[in-house]
């Protein structure tokens, strides 16, 4: 089981890498904005028209480009390829997510407990759930597919770091973690973290898109032109954050109750607790900013990005730089 888990991790990482590259390819060769698209599509339609059975349909084909979906590609040879890049990226994501979930499940079976016992398993669980949440989002909102590039970038980085740096062989829980609060507290933290991850990616994409709309063309902003409608992405980001925040609050509360049982105090400003508090405050700030009409949506999105950075700080920074009560099993 442990070998299967380790082997599938490689499949997961390669699939996500492929998905990321396919998404990037879609950016490079896919839709080129409305104007370029309409201009380039005319000869393309001719080629298609040549194979059509009735020649008189050609004028309709000429009229068609104006309503062509932006995703339908540019010219001749690259067009058919480009049209497949996006769906292929989603396919690779699905493959990766399946391998990823099995990686986590087999790990849990091998260890005979929930796979949240050390930082390797923790990161792996967050990213697995993140992929599932991302695919679920995509199922309901096809138009945000471009967000996949950012989500897959996070996935590749986090799964890569988990596999290469954080890897820990299967082992039992230390007595300190042997409590039913283990599943409740860490389960809630993992769920909310993975939601925050996808939500954070959406916030970044929204900022790129609004930056592009405001005339910015620098690195990253150049992608903006090909992203989905800014408002839809922003609303998605808000809904994911609004979903994640109560779960995060519950996770922190459950942690406090467990801390009382294990250490005798519900809150002790352990570095992990400090950063959980900071994230909570920042995300509370995001929700307030988002609910205030006089505050720009892009300001709120920046707060969300800062919130995600504090989560990353808590995950990596605190475990590496500080020692506290929350250090278990490696790193």
């Amino acid at each position: 089981m442990a070998e299967l888990s380790d082997g599938l991790l490689v499949v997961t990482l390669l699939s996500y890498l492929a998905a990321m590259l396919l998404h990037a390819g879609e950016y490079a060769f896919g839709a080129r904005g409305r104007i370029a698209n309409a201009a380039a599509a005319v000869p393309a339609r001719e080629l298609v028209g040549a194979g059509a059975p009735v020649v008189t349909e050609a004028p309709h084909a000429y009229a068609a480009p104006a309503v062509t979906e932006p995703g339908d590609g540019a010219s001749g040879g690259t067009r058919s390829l480009a049209a497949w890049l996006g769906p292929a990226a989603v396919g690779a994501t699905i493959l990766g997510a399946v391998a990823h979930v099995i990686t986590v499940v087999t790990r849990g079976i091998a260890a005979e407990r929930l796979p949240f016992g050390n930082m390797y398993e923790f990161v792996l669980s967050i990213t697995a759930l993140g992929s599932v949440i991302w695919l679920g989002t995509l199922f309901f909102q096809r138009q945000v597919r471009h967000l996949g590039l950012f989500v897959m970038l996070f996935e590749v980085l986090l799964v890569g770091v988990a596999g290469m740096v954080l890897y820990t062989p299967v082992g039992p829980l230390v007595p300190a973690l042997d409590s039913y609060w283990f599943g409740i507290h860490i389960g809630a933290v993992i769920t909310s973290s993975s939601l925050f991850m996808v939500a954070g990616a959406a916030s970044i994409m929204y900022l790129v898109r609004t930056g592009y709309d405001n005339g910015k063309r620098g690195f990253l902003y150049a992608f903006g032109g090909r992203l989905a409608n800014a408002e839809a992405v922003e609303r998605l980001s808000f809904r994911l954050h609004a979903f994640a925040f109560p779960i995060w609050t519950f996770g922190v509360t459950a942690g406090a109750i467990w801390a009382e049982v294990a250490w005798g105090r519900y809150w002790g400003w352990d570095p992990k607790e400090v950063w959980a508090f900071i994230s909570w405050v920042v995300y509370a700030g995001y929700l307030h900013a988002r609910a205030t009409p006089s505050i720009k949506r892009s300001t709120a999105a920046w707060i969300a990005v800062i919130g995600f950075l504090t989560m990353m700080m808590n995950l990596f920074g605190v475990n590496i730089f500080f020692t506290g009560l929350h250090s278990y099993g490696g790193v």
């Binding site: 002790g268 570095p271 400090v274 900071i278 405050v281 900013a289 504090t310 605190v318």
Partner: peptide
Amino acid sequence: SMRTALMLLFLLAVAAIPGSVLPQRSV
């Protein structure tokens, strides 16, 4: 005002950071 409340929230988050960097007597 909401703007002040947000500023204070941020100050609170920033002010909490040194407590995780420096050793704390209470910890």
